[in-house]
């Protein structure tokens, strides 16, 4: 029991951190760079992707034995596209302002390689609970990345976070941060940071292992 719990936790946490779709796998860059000029847009895009990924994973896992392997990709895409369309109309009806900001990038969730990748690599091979955990983990990781990137860009670009002014009226906005180059620069620096942390950890581990080996 404890072991299966451990495994479940693992499936969840790997998407959030160890195999984070953005910072480690570098997947889904198009929405990542295009819509994250504010935290709220990041949240909206992250939640839309969350919904599509979790629903698609559920159905793909549920129907995996019905779907012949020759047409599996087409079936995955149909399932994904259905949920994307649902999200598209729902956002347009409920929050037209957010929909206007995200624009063409909502329909483009269909082409987000993260989603199709999870169906092919995980959901179509695992049980429904495991597929859900994986999807929730990956989607959370994606959401986390979008929000942090959007947050940084909004703080520097407009002096606000989620629309609340942080620095008062005299703040000098960093215009570049709202523009596409700001997205590239910020994401590049974040990747740099993650790789640096990873490398440092590896080095420390190696040192530790060497020290232990010496002690033996």
């Amino acid at each position: 029991m404890a072991k299966s719990q451990q495994q479940a936790y693992d499936e969840f946490i790997k998407g959030v951190w160890r195999e984070n779709p953005v910072f480690v796998q570098v997947l889904g860059m198009c929405p990542m760079l295009a819509v994250t000029n504010s935290a709220i847009n990041g949240i909206a895009m992250g939640l839309a992707t969350f919904f599509v990924l979790v629903c698609s994973s559920f159905f793909v896992s549920l129907l995996k034995s019905f779907i012949p392997k020759q047409v599996r990709i087409s079936c995955f895409i149909i399932i994904i596209a259905t949920f994307v369309t649902v999200v598209d109309y729902t956002l347009l009806a409920l929050v037209p302002k957010v929909h206007k900001e995200l624009g063409a990038f909502i329909p483009l969730i269909v082409a987000n390689c993260l989603i199709l990748g999870r169906q092919e690599a995980f959901a179509s091979k695992n049980t429904i609970p495991m597929a859900m955990l994986d999807a929730v983990g990956m989607a959370s990781g994606f959401l986390l990345a979008l929000v942090s990137l959007g947050g940084i860009r909004e703080i520097l670009g407009e002096g606000k976070l989620l629309g609340f002014s942080l620095f008062g009226p005299n703040f000098e906005p960093w215009v570049i941060m709202i523009l596409p180059p700001g997205g590239f620069i910020t994401l590049g620096l974040m990747l740099l940071f993650f790789n640096w942390v990873e490398e440092r950890k590896k080095k420390l581990d190696a040192q530790l292992a060497a020290a232990e080996g010496g002690a033996d």
């Binding site: 019905f66 779907i67 012949p68 149909i78 649902v86």
Partner: peptide, 19 residues
């Protein structure tokens, strides 16, 4: 194969029209 895709398309279409 064709049947699977047709069924998938049909269900998908119904959902989209409903939404």
């Amino acid at each position: 194969l064709v049947g699977t895709l047709a069924v998938a398309g049909l269900i998908s279409g119904v959902i989209i029209i409903a939404v």
